[in-house]
Amino acid sequence: MKKANIVCALVGMIFSAGVFIATLGFRQFRNVPVGPEFFPRWLSAGLFICCLALLVVSLGTKSDQAAPSISPFDKGIQRLLIGLAIAIAYAACWEPVGFIVITPVAVFALMFLLGKREYRSMLLMAAGSTAVIFCAFRFLLGIDMPMGLFSLFGI
């Protein structure tokens, strides 16, 4: 965890320094004791100090247990990246394709990714969860979900 903490502290320090520099470009307001730059500037300084403390403490400690991996060669991370891609693609398809059409496809794909291979129950689950969520939001709560292709037919 030591290396991971050092990397996290450095990332945090760079981020907070960037924010601090950005606040220097904020417009100054006259006759205002505390302007819009005050909070972000002090908060970025606070974040920098905390990250520095984490860095100093981490450098002073012995290396303990290994940090969890985020290597793209790790099987779990590969699965996660595919899952993330499915989630983004799923959201991107809501408006053009429609919630009702794309949701069972996404649910089915995710179950497949997670290692499920019982196709009949997967189909049932994909269709069932889509129907329940759609009906609950559309008819009980009155929230219109994007209909995509169905809107062409006036639905």
Binding site: A87, W94, L110, K116, M125, I133, F137, I143, M145
Partner: peptide
């Protein structure tokens, strides 16, 4: 869990969308 996780993902994204009916909120949640 293999059934539950995809359902939670869908429910979460729909929940993020429901507040303002805005796709930005969905990507922001991700």
């Amino acid at each position: 869990r293999k059934f539950l996780i995809p359902a939670i993902l869908v429910l979460s994204l729909v929940g993020a969308y429901a507040i303002n009916r805005n796709m930005f909120d969905v990507y922001f949640a991700i």
